[in-house]
Simulated scan of single mutants.
Amino acid sequence: MRKLILMMLSVWMIGGMANAQSRWSLTPEAGMTAVQRVGYGTWRPGVKVGASIGYQFKPEWIGLKAGLFYTNRGYSMGDYPVTSQYLDGTTTFELIGGSITQHFLQLPVMADFSWKVGDKVRMHLGVGMYAGVSLSNHWKWGSSMTTVSKPDPGVEQRMISYPYPYPGGNYEMAYDTNPFGGQSSFDWGLTTSFGIEVDNWIINVGYELSLGDEGDSYMVRGDNFSFMDDRGVGSNYNTLSLSVGYKFKLGK
């Protein structure tokens, strides 16, 4: 009798483990993004590629998924006019500005709500948060500059023009802090997605709101104006994404 009970328990445990294992899935994904810097109207294209791993609870309408993705984002600033006058009579007219592109690894964690709408069709709604770290920041901050030199007696006024960015690479004004040089490498925010699963193929539409503290504050000064950006926790980027993936059901 004892052997029979032990055998039944063993079969039940093995069956339970196999059933639990069958609820795991791995979904590689790849797609495109559209990124907007809050406060700037333009949207920039980007890419998103990675994979997520999911677990389906009982009842099957709720699950949990986490992933690891590469994505990029950025924006441009400028051009801001700056006029400087020197004791020798030289006057410089400049347009300062620049741009940044960041390359991120992101770890999203979401609750996955799903419901069946057909024999092989299932809808998904994911809600959660993400954390990310920047692998590299590529930025430019410089000026397009025209210098009007003090003319010597009997000599015509001379003008010298320099292309953007300033020769020699990145150029930072002595009276400005750099908008891009003090960027934090850590980011976090809210994420959500809506997807359709058809015979293990998945199409996801996603949205992310970046909220992380970007690092040091900075100032930009132009003719007759200046503004100071006090960085901190707050909305930084809106990101829309469209990706396609294939779900591999593990344990089967």
Rank of each mutant, 00 (worst) to 15 (best):
86 Y>R: 01
177 T>D: 13
90 T>K: 00
246 Y>C: 00
62 I>D: 13
14 I>P: 02
207 Y>H: 05
56 Q>H: 08
141 W>F: 09
231 R>M: 02
149 S>Y: 15
101 T>D: 09
237 Y>V: 00
252 K>S: 10
89 G>R: 00
155 V>F: 15
114 S>V: 02
23 R>I: 03
7 M>C: 15
207 Y>K: 02
51 A>H: 03
155 V>Y: 15
144 S>W: 14
118 G>M: 02
211 L>D: 01
6 L>P: 13
175 Y>T: 13
99 S>T: 12
146 T>I: 15
78 G>D: 02
54 G>H: 08
117 V>E: 06
37 R>G: 13
211 L>M: 08
208 E>N: 14
230 D>C: 11
146 T>S: 12
150 K>W: 12
51 A>N: 05
139 W>M: 01
168 G>A: 10
120 K>F: 14
100 I>F: 05
209 L>C: 15
173 M>S: 15
197 E>T: 09
11 V>R: 11
44 R>V: 10
36 Q>E: 09
246 Y>S: 01
185 S>D: 15
166 Y>G: 06
187 D>W: 04
130 Y>P: 07
149 S>A: 15
139 W>T: 07
53 I>N: 09
46 G>A: 03
96 I>H: 11
236 N>T: 05
211 L>E: 03
93 F>R: 11
98 G>N: 01
93 F>S: 06
31 G>I: 06
215 G>Q: 07
106 Q>L: 14
51 A>P: 01
169 G>D: 12
223 D>W: 03
214 E>G: 11
8 M>W: 11
181 G>T: 13
65 K>A: 10
34 A>H: 05
173 M>Y: 12
239 T>F: 06
208 E>H: 10
45 P>R: 08
240 L>G: 09
160 I>D: 15
180 F>Q: 07
153 P>V: 06
45 P>M: 06
8 M>V: 11
89 G>L: 00
187 D>T: 06
223 D>S: 08
187 D>V: 05
234 G>K: 01
118 G>R: 07
108 P>V: 05
108 P>W: 03
244 V>R: 02
241 S>P: 07
139 W>N: 05
222 G>I: 00
127 V>C: 10
240 L>D: 02
175 Y>P: 11
249 K>N: 13
